[in-house]
């Protein structure tokens, strides 16, 4: 399969500006269009090793970030388009890259329901996957980035997708979204982290994305067995700890962190039950990233649940 890196700059720009760039992202194919050099540069950096979609393939999601017409250019505004319609208000062009990534998340959050989707990061080592649910700000993306930079395979920093009645995770590797201080925290953690364009003054503050496909198997599509669920919480003033957590509470919390648990109704309940019954659950409170990575490393060989 051909990778984006095989395209010359002019070929890449040609595709982005005209027919659209088809990319294989986990089980989905996105077709991306943009006329913004900033966004093209971000894609070229962060999706460099992604596989290109076959020319005749069925496209799941048509997305675009465009600044159209003289007036919009003068105002420095752009639109995110999905299926050629504009689901959101116009955004400042300087934030376009972050909005493309959010928009690509939104496609999965809103339009796919063949999996139970947890709002969670997921990483794997060997066949062993760890699911890390968390509210925004809990530090799941930061931890996910650090694990990715420490030899773990990043499966997703946003959607842990579970086929109902399995304990498997479907890989959906895309750039990791980091916000505010966590950008520098990750840069300090590893100088090898590769970042895309920085978007300032978004509704979430400063946002930058980190290249996530750092593992040789990053783009394999085979599902992985989830054996562990970790609920990370970044807390500056608390004692760092990795403690077992009861399954009942974990069920409720994971359901709360799901995009489509209630939409799937009984299927959702059964899927969550199967998953929770087969994973060991932990709370991870941390403020030092090295400590947190070591703690997760220690879970590679999980002990039975208390």
């Amino acid at each position: 399969m051909q990778q984006l890196a095989n395209l010359s700059d002019s070929e890449l720009n040609q595709r982005l500006a005209h027919e659209g760039l088809g990319l294989q992202v986990g089980p989905y194919i996105y077709k991306i269009k943009t006329n913004l050099p900033l966004v093209a540069a971000g894609i070229s950096t962060l999706y460099k090793n992604f596989n290109l979609a076959e020319p005749e393939a069925f496209i799941d999601y048509n997305v675009a970030i465009l600044s159209k017409g003289l007036l919009q250019r003068l105002r420095g505004q752009s639109d995110f388009l999905f299926d050629s319609t504009n689901p959101f208000d116009s955004i400042p062009t300087g934030q376009a890259y972050a909005f493309l990534e959010w928009g690509m998340n939104w496609c999965v959050s809103l339009h796919t329901n063949e999996y139970l989707k947890l709002h969670a990061a997921a990483v794997s080592r060997g066949d062993h996957a760890i699911i890390m649910p968390g509210v925004p700000g809990a530090g799941k993306s930061t931890l996910c980035a650090a694990l990715g930079l420490s030899g773990w395979r990043i499966l997703s920093d946003e959607h842990a997708m579970i086929p109902p009645n399995t304990t498997e995770v479907v890989p959906l590797c895309r750039p990791v979204s980091l916000k505010n201080e966590s950008i520098d925290v990750v840069k300090r953690f590893s100088s090898s982290a590769i970042f895309g364009p920085v978007s300032r003054e978004t509704h979430k503050g400063v946002v930058a994305h980190m290249k996530a496909d750092l593992h040789p198997q990053s783009h394999e599509t085979k599902t992985l067995q989830a054996r562990t669920m970790v609920f990370p919480k970044y807390a500056k003033d608390e004692t760092q700890r990795l403690t077992p957590r009861r399954r009942t509470e974990s069920f409720i919390l994971a359901a709360y962190h799901s995009f489509n648990y209630s939409l799937l109704c009984e299927t959702g309940f059964e899927a969550m039950k199967t998953l929770i019954e087969n994973v060991t659950c932990y709370d991870l409170v941390y403020h030092d990233l090295d400590w947190a990575v070591n703690a997760v490393d220690s879970l590679s060989d999980p002990e039975p649940n208390p």
């Binding site: 069925f58 799941d60 339009h111 796919t112 329901n113 063949e114 489509n260 209630s262 939409l263 799937l264 109704c265």
Partner: peptide, 21 residues
């Protein structure tokens, strides 16, 4: 149809079912 295509229809039907409930 191919499962890649059908899943989009199924997803919309699930949304419809959820709305009805």
């Amino acid at each position: 149809l191919s499962p890649n295509v059908t899943r989009h229809f199924q997803s919309a039907l699930l949304v419809h079912e959820k709305q009805k409930r």
